[in-house]
Design a protein around this nucleic acid. Structure first.
Lengths: 107, 107
DNA sequence: ATATATCATCGTAATATTGCAATATTAAAA
DNA sequence: TTTTAATATTGCAATATTACGATGATATAT
């Protein structure tokens, strides 16, 4: 008990839920908001911008990275990354498909 | 510690995160998938369709109701509800705006 | 009125998420 | 090589979520 019963749902359902989970925290929305509005790659200063402790930001960034929404170099002292536009567009498409799939006029 | 620091983020950021949270579980995606594909209102049988216990479905439905994604009659033996198309479209617009807001070519 | 069917609520166990202090790692600078 | 600056990892406490059995409420059917 307690854990999500992933296996009883379809792959697309799980994938969309997974993507939504990444967006399901205001810090991650704020991070994505900020990065996507930059002209160039992001190198540091997210901690100041967002206002959470460095380990917390690091964790949130990791969640975003895990689904492939960021690309760049993730090694060394100064990271340098930005939005992975391909994945970004893919997610946009997934969400839009989900919302477009409506077929009723009732109640 | 432990609780999301809602107050340090903007209203739109919190609202989008809140909406995403509702979509962040495959059961709720499955429920919305199912309801949105019906021709008419839904009256019962979600428990069989999804495959989770009745109280669990009830909880998930409640999460969906809380952000206004369902409308209909929620009293009596046989409920009768369907997607709230206005809210549905609004969310579609919110997500789409978020994803459209991208401004970079780098890395 | 009583039984039945259906959904909601309560209580609780299991698991996941959030947040941060402390510490480790890493690469460039001095 | 030793600092230094920046990010990652670890460990843990607080909180939230998920799931379901038991029970309660409600409306229809008998």
């Amino acid at each position: 008990m307690g854990a999500t019963k992933t296996h009883i749902f379809s792959i697309p359902q799980n994938e969309l839920a997974q993507a939504a989970k990444v967006l399901a925290h205001p810090a991650r929305i704020a991070i994505l908001d900020y990065i996507s509005k930059q002209e160039n790659c992001i190198c540091t200063d997210l901690v100041d911008v967002i206002g959470l402790a460095q380990p917390t930001i690091s964790q949130h960034l990791n969640e975003i990275k895990k689904i492939g929404l960021l690309k760049g170099t993730f090694e060394g002292k100064n990271l340098c990354y930005c939005i992975n536009k391909e994945k970004w567009t893919e997610l946009q498409f997934f969400f839009n498909s989900f919302f477009s799939n409506i077929n009723q006029n009732c109640c």
